[in-house]
Design a protein around this nucleic acid. Structure first.
Lengths: 204, 204
DNA sequence: ACCTGAACACCGTTCAAGT
DNA sequence: ACCTGAACACCGTTCAAGT
């Protein structure tokens, strides 16, 4: 005698994301998710291979949302002005992290591959910024420029979330300072190179 | 009848750090640490309040090591030349992360306060870089410049460790590019400011 | 076809009992 | 003083049994 389904994959992912955002990754247990959707833990395994797969689905969901926000930021009023686009993208990125801190951490956490979000989604989320980086730094330096700004933005935000920046001072000021200096630096023509010992490829 | 101690706090911390570096934070269980020092798990609680305290002691130990390496890098042959000092510090930071990836992740992981390394050690580890940032960017911008370079370095390294940078390209090149552009940007005089909407304090 | 209790192998942590 | 087995409250996961 078949039984009607009492929940769905979509409901499970939504419940899991709510728990993640409310109480963090350690609280995202199979038992809590099951309780949230009105079922017992073993039933979840009908819809999801294991906890890692559920975490990955939640990360995919969040990364899709971030990618869409970044696409909107790029297409907004700033479109065409690379500096303004970059400011809008950085603000969007940072706002996402502040609004969903636990989810943001999950997206960039150094977890095993099975837990990490889909690589294709990752590419999609980084594309708007790469396009802006190309407009700013030129084709030859697009990838390096994109990585520089991404590293700074992620580093800054993750230190904020981790409670770094304990030396006082004005964090907003440091954000604006870093962003403006980076924009100026990426738009600049190639600076004088480092001495031999610091060049790539020379690390024995 | 008193029993002679069969282990020590120092031995426990060392064993824990070895397990962390070999198999990552989830493998750092009380049972495994106990087995490594030849004792049963409950005995660890004579020396350590709980697992969080043990993790914190291990993080302190590693952060002390990183701080010392950064101090040596600053005092090395490059001393006096702010640009060369910064290159040496960044290389040291990155080398530490590559040599002890699991430990590096722990130092910067967004964990509850009870797990995080001592704040005083944190200050000590960031001091050499702040001094160099001051020499490069001037007193008025020392803190912001330090935060900018720290954010970039941490962001870059953590993305490397997390398996970001999946778009191909030359990661060494991106590292050298980012570092040199940052050095140029931080040393530069104040660039033209952003439009009103992007200034700090104007975010409603 | 879906859901469940029971079971298994793990955790961290406490504590009375042993030496 | 230190160490231990046993216990407790949790995990994730599997599976036979129920409907």
């Amino acid at each position: 005698v078949p039984t009607p389904a009492r929940t769905s994959l979509a409901e499970i992912v939504a419940a899991g994301r709510a728990i993640l955002e409310a109480d963090g990754l350690p609280a995202l247990t199979m038992q809590r998710v099951a309780a949230a959707v009105g079922v017992r833990a073993p039933s979840l395994y009908k819809r999801v291979r294991d906890r890692a797969a559920l975490v990955r689905l939640i990360a995919d969901d969040a990364l899709r949302e971030l990618a869409e926000a970044l696409e909107r930021a790029s297409a907004g009023g700033a479109a065409g002005d690379a500096r303004a686009e970059l400011r809008a993208q950085a603000a969007t990125f940072r706002a996402f992290a502040h609004t969903h801190p636990a989810t943001y951490r999950l997206l960039f956490a150094p977890l095993p591959e099975a837990w990490r979000p889909d690589a294709e989604l990752n590419r999609r989320a980084s594309e708007p910024l790469l396009r802006t980086a190309e407009a700013l730094a030129g084709r030859a330096h697009a990838l390096e420029a994109g990585r520089t700004i991404t590293a700074w933005a992620h580093g800054f935000v993750s230190m904020e979330l981790a409670g770094g920046f304990r030396l006082g001072g004005d964090v907003e000021r440091a954000y604006a300072f870093g962003l403006e200096r980076l924009i100026a630096a990426l738009a600049a023509p190639t600076p004088t190179g480092p001495p031999e010992g610091a060049r790539p490829g020379s690390r024995s």
